[in-house]
Structure formats: structure tokens, C-alpha cells
């Protein structure tokens, strides 16, 4: 399987994603520079975390205008797998590939810590290796992870099973106390209608080796690989 990790000026998790794909998953991976206008030969594109263009405007608001984003959009339209992690998720929202927007965390602070996530739909390309309702321990690290979306879209996403991950406690209970940033309905990760575009605030690449405190993020990577293998 061949991954492409998109690099924007100010991305800072691209090397981490590269490391996990290359050294832990042992799959092919290449960087895709933000000025590329055409991407091909990839089975999955990763938009990594960071502060693209410094995030001096709204997070991701400038990155969406990068030449590469047109290519990412076409890739997604054709059914290609696109995963946006943290800032990558924010860019997908700004680019309109996923619905909704991000507000600042309710604490008004950057938050870096492990959180628990309940897998709400385990029959997606991103979560097929998870048991229904499985709790994953994966860290977050962001300032703007307070997800909002209009009521109708939210209802539709619930009905269609597009809410993939929700913040929960260690026992899998979704509660206000377990919500680190104020996100609507404890939403931590969502998909588009075709389930081939996935955005999530937590960093699975930071939880892909036991030595870093958790390997639960592997569930997501391995789901991608299983989906790809099955699809052929």
C-alpha cells in the first residue's frame, strides 16, 4: 500500500506520520509538497497535524488554497482515501470536504493529553478493525478542536453513521466530563457521505507504539490497510 503525506508550510506532524507508516506499518510512503498540482499513485493521502501557514488566520483557512488541495479534492471525489489529522482535519473542513467548523477549546487553552475515544461505527475504511464501541486511548494536541455543525447536518451524520469517534471516559461512557474541548456531541472524528474522507482531532500516529504509552492508534492504520487489501 502506498501512502502520501501532504506537507504544507507549517505542518509539523508530517515526519511522525511518515515514521509510523514507514517504520511501524512498513508500508510505502512519500511526502507530497503543497505546491504539487497533481497527485497519483497513492492509495491513501494523509493531511498531517501542525500549524499550516502559522494558522494566523482561521486554522486551515489558508492551506485550503494550496495548489495541492485541488488535487486532494479530485482524489477524494474519485473515491480515494483521505485522512486529515488535527490540523489536517481543520483543513478538510475549510476545504469543504467535510462538514462543520472548529471553535477554540472551551478552556481557551491548547490541550495536549491522552483521551479516550469510543468507536461509533466500526464498519468504515478507518475503523473496520475495531470492535463496535471499542475504546481507544489516543492523545489530542490542539487549540481549536471544539467542533460545531448545523443541526440538520448533525442529524444526518448521526443517521448515516458518519460520526466515527466520540470522546468518552475509560469505560466508554460519553459524557460532558469526558469532553476535552467542548465539541458538539463529543465529536472527535467524522466521515464524508462516501466514508472515504475521514477527519479526526486525535493523533493516531502518536499512539502507534507501546513505548509511547499506547498502540491503540494502530487500529486506525490497520483498518486502512485491511480496507485497501480487501478492495484490491
Amino acid at each position: 500500500m502506498r501512502f502520501g503525506v501532504v506537507v504544507f508550510p507549517g505542518s509539523n506532524c508530517e515526519a511522525d506520520c511518515y515514521h509510523v507508516i514507514n517504520k511501524v506499518l512498513r508500508e510505502d510512503v512519500e511526502y507530497v509538497w503543497h505546491q504539487e498540482t497533481y497527485v497519483s499513485g497513492y492509495d491513501c493521502l494523509v493531511l498531517p497535524g501542525g500549524f499550516s501557514y502559522g494558522d494566523y488566520l482561521r486554522c486551515g483557512a489558508i492551506a485550503r488554497f494550496s495548489p495541492v488541495m485541488d488535487a486532494v479534492s479530485s482524489f477524494a471525489r474519485e473515491g480515494g482515501l483521505v485522512i486529515g489529522i488535527c490540523n489536517g482535519f481543520q483543513i478538510l473542513l475549510e476545504a469543504g470536504l467535510l462538514p462543520g467548523a472548529m471553535l477554540r477549546n472551551t478552556s481557551l487553552h491548547f490541550i495536549c493529553r491522552f483521551v479516550n475515544l469510543r468507536v461509533e461505527n466500526s464498519s468504515t475504511p478507518w475503523t473496520n478493525r475495531a470492535a463496535p464501541g471499542q475504546v481507544l486511548r489516543i492523545p489530542i494536541a490542539h487549540n481549536e478542536g471544539n467542533y460545531v455543525v448545523d443541526r440538520d447536518t448533525h442529524r444526518r451524520m448521526v443517521e448515516e453513521g458518519r460520526i466515527i469517534l466520540r470522546y468518552c471516559d475509560g469505560e466508554g461512557k460519553v459524557s460532558e466530563e469526558a469532553n476535552p474541548n467542548g465539541a458538539l456531541d463529543n465529536i472527535a472524528g467524522i466521515c464524508n457521505e462516501g466514508f472515504n474522507v475521514f477527519g479526526l482531532m486525535p493523533h493516531p500516529e502518536r499512539a502507534s507504539e507501546e513505548i509511547l504509552g499506547s498502540a491503540d492508534g494502530l487500529v486506525i492504520w490497520e483498518s486502512i490497510m485491511a480496507y485497501h487489501a480487501e478492495r484490491g
Binding site: N12, C13, A15, D16, H19, V20, G49, H109, F110, I111, C112, R113, P139, A141, H203, E205, R206, E209, I211, L212, G213
Partner: peptide
């Protein structure tokens, strides 16, 4: 304080803040 700092990026931190010393692996 330290939760406001990204203390994990680069995937080297194998002992997080809060113990005697931080430990960073050399990949």
C-alpha cells in the same frame, strides 16, 4: 501547565512530563 505544551510531537518522548526527568528516545 504542561498540558498546554505539546510534549509529544516528534514521537521521541517516552517518559512524559511529571517524573524526575523527561526521557527522549533517539530514533
Amino acid at each position: 501547565v504542561y498540558e498546554q505544551y505539546d510534549h509529544m510531537v516528534q514521537l521521541n518522548t517516552v517518559v512524559y512530563p511529571g517524573s524526575d526527568a523527561a526521557v527522549l528516545r533517539v530514533k
